[in-house]
């Protein structure tokens, strides 16, 4: 289904194929991770529901901590997504034929 399989179909045996194989493997695992990211995000964002709210007067979480947590998660998601975006572009560029035949 993804275009990650293209390089896997290139003939084996010649020397660069080792790199391509490995690279397409990386690319696929990277895709897997990218697919899992929203689930991680959803899980992180549901955690605050477990916190005690103001009905439990003594233990209520102050809003500043809540803000800190939410925005930290948010930032984390953005950073990971940025990392995936850059990696995907790098791998995608290297995958184009003869771009850098090392």
């Amino acid at each position: 289904m993804t275009d990650a399989g293209d390089s896997a179909r290139k003939p084996l045996g010649s020397k660069p194929s080792l790199f391509l194989e490995r690279q397409s493997y990386r690319r696929r695992r990277m895709t897997d991770a990218a697919r899992l990211l929203p689930f991680l995000g959803a899980a992180l964002l549901v955690i605050p529901l477990l916190w005690p709210d103001e009905t439990v007067e003594s233990q209520a979480v102050p809003l500043s901590s809540a803000i800190f947590y939410i925005f930290a998660c948010w930032g984390l998601l953005i950073l990971v997504s940025l990392f995936f975006g850059l990696t995907a572009r790098r791998l995608g560029r290297r995958e184009s034929p003869e771009a850098d035949a090392d």
Partner: peptide, 23 residues
């Protein structure tokens, strides 16, 4: 941050149903 915590909305108070539904 101190003012936030001291304000009338200064504590974590979110309805679980609304939170997930709105997301």
């Amino acid at each position: 941050m101190d003012r936030i915590d001291a304000s009338e909305i200064g504590q974590w108070n979110v309805d679980a149903g609304r939170w997930t539904t709105f997301i």
